[in-house]
Measured scan of single mutants.
Amino acid sequence: FHVTIHVGDITFHIHGVSEEEVKKLEELVRRGADWREIKKTIEEIEK
């Protein structure tokens, strides 16, 4: 999957994300995680 996440003024683009990881990111966004937490999760996914 290709994912784009907008957190305030920050936009993250992630490529090659599995469905499971998409759900993890959706959950973070849904519970209102700040951009640092989302960035950390994205960095883990990209490894």
Results as ranks from 00 to 15, higher is better:
residue 18 S to V: 04
residue 29 V to G: 02
residue 12 F to T: 02
residue 18 S to Q: 07
residue 10 I to F: 14
residue 18 S to Y: 04
residue 34 D to M: 02
residue 8 G to W: 06
residue 10 I to L: 12
residue 1 F to S: 10
residue 17 V to T: 03
residue 38 I to V: 06
residue 27 E to A: 09
residue 3 V to E: 01
residue 20 E to T: 11
residue 11 T to V: 13
residue 12 F to S: 01
residue 35 W to Q: 04
residue 45 I to Y: 08
residue 27 E to C: 04
residue 1 F to I: 09
residue 29 V to H: 03
residue 2 H to L: 10
residue 7 V to S: 07
residue 19 E to G: 11
residue 2 H to W: 15
residue 29 V to L: 11
residue 24 K to N: 07
residue 14 I to G: 01
residue 16 G to F: 13
residue 14 I to R: 01
residue 36 R to V: 11
residue 32 G to A: 04
residue 34 D to H: 06
residue 37 E to A: 03
residue 29 V to P: 00
residue 8 G to V: 04
residue 10 I to Y: 15
residue 15 H to R: 10
residue 47 K to H: 10
residue 29 V to F: 08
residue 28 L to A: 05
residue 36 R to S: 15
residue 11 T to I: 13
residue 38 I to M: 04
residue 37 E to N: 01
residue 18 S to E: 04
residue 31 R to H: 09
residue 17 V to F: 15
residue 36 R to W: 14
residue 19 E to L: 14
residue 38 I to F: 05
residue 35 W to C: 07
residue 39 K to Y: 12
residue 5 I to E: 00
residue 26 E to T: 09
residue 11 T to Q: 07
residue 26 E to R: 08
residue 35 W to N: 02
residue 17 V to A: 11
residue 11 T to F: 09
residue 20 E to R: 10
residue 18 S to T: 15
residue 29 V to E: 04
residue 44 E to K: 04
residue 7 V to Q: 04
residue 16 G to Y: 11
residue 3 V to A: 07
residue 47 K to C: 13
residue 7 V to P: 01
residue 37 E to R: 01
residue 7 V to T: 06
residue 39 K to T: 08
residue 26 E to C: 13
residue 5 I to V: 07
residue 41 T to K: 09
residue 35 W to G: 02
residue 9 D to Y: 09
residue 34 D to N: 07
residue 10 I to D: 06
residue 45 I to W: 15
residue 36 R to Q: 15
residue 3 V to Q: 03
residue 14 I to C: 08
residue 30 R to W: 07
residue 43 E to N: 05
residue 8 G to P: 02
residue 8 G to S: 06
residue 44 E to A: 07
residue 22 V to M: 14
residue 34 D to Q: 04
residue 31 R to M: 11
residue 24 K to D: 04
residue 21 E to F: 13
residue 9 D to P: 10
residue 28 L to V: 06
residue 34 D to L: 03
residue 43 E to T: 05
residue 21 E to L: 12
residue 37 E to V: 05
residue 11 T to S: 10
residue 23 K to M: 12
residue 21 E to K: 06
residue 24 K to C: 07
residue 22 V to T: 06
residue 13 H to L: 09
residue 14 I to D: 00
residue 15 H to L: 10
residue 23 K to P: 01
residue 30 R to M: 14
residue 30 R to S: 14
residue 46 E to Y: 15
residue 4 T to Q: 07
residue 3 V to Y: 13
residue 32 G to M: 03
residue 26 E to H: 11
residue 39 K to D: 02
residue 37 E to S: 03
residue 13 H to D: 10
residue 25 L to S: 00
residue 9 D to R: 06
residue 33 A to Q: 02
residue 26 E to K: 09
residue 7 V to F: 13
residue 19 E to C: 06
residue 11 T to N: 05
